[in-house]
């Protein structure tokens, strides 16, 4: 028969005993383990996220550095090229100048030699012709004025001859 009796009180006591025993001996470690796990997972995910961000930042930094390095290398190469070009130009310029100088000096030397030779020839011609003329004229032409006159004539003659 359905009736309320002392089973009610026995049941309440039963349930409280069960609750007390489980709460004291079972739930504490279990709930703690679950909490710990949750915390650990949250922490791990946090740290993973952190690590990912760090790695990304590092990657960014490296990419930046690589870019800078490449730019710098390009600059250095460009600078070196410019320097080399400059050196080359200078060398060419210098060589040109030197060549011109050498040529010029050679030409001058040749000119001088030529002039000297001409002078030598002239002197010899003068001497020779003087002597010849002297001998021919027999000491009539020994004075300085005579010599000069003869020289002038010789010059004229040579100039004419050269032409």
């Amino acid at each position: 028969m359905v009736s309320i009796n002392y089973t009610l009180i026995a049941q309440i006591v039963n349930f409280i005993i069960l609750l007390w025993v489980l709460a004291k001996f079972a739930y504490k470690p279990l709930l703690k383990a679950m909490d710990d796990r949750r915390n650990k997972i949250v922490k791990d995910m946090d740290s993973a996220e952190h690590a990912r961000k760090d790695a990304e930042a590092l990657k960014q930094e490296y990419a930046e550095q690589l870019k800078n390095a490449r730019k710098e290398a390009n600059e250095i190469i460009a600078k070196a090229n410019a320097e080399a070009q400059k050196l080359h130009d200078e060398a060419v310029q210098q060589a040109q100048t030197e060549r011109d100088e050498i040529l010029q000096s050679g030409r001058d030397r040749v000119e001088a030699e030529k002039r000297k030779a001409l002078l030598d020839v002239r002197e010899q011609v003068i001497a020779l012709s003087t002597e010849i003329a002297g001998r021919v004229l027999e000491q009539k032409l020994t004075s300085q004025q005579d010599q000069a006159m003869i020289a002038r004539v010789t010059d004229q003659t040579m100039a004419e001859k050269n032409n």
Binding site: N5, Y6, A10, N14, I17, L22, A26
Partner: peptide, 30 residues
């Protein structure tokens, strides 16, 4: 007056619940 069948079953239920919970907390692992 106590309904003994009910009380026995209540005890059995308590034992089963306690056994399940204790079995699960015997070696609590991460």
């Amino acid at each position: 007056v106590i309904n003994m069948q009910t009380i026995y079953m209540s005890w059995l239920t308590m034992v089963i619940v306690a056994a399940i919970v204790f079995a699960s907390t015997r070696h609590v692992e991460k």
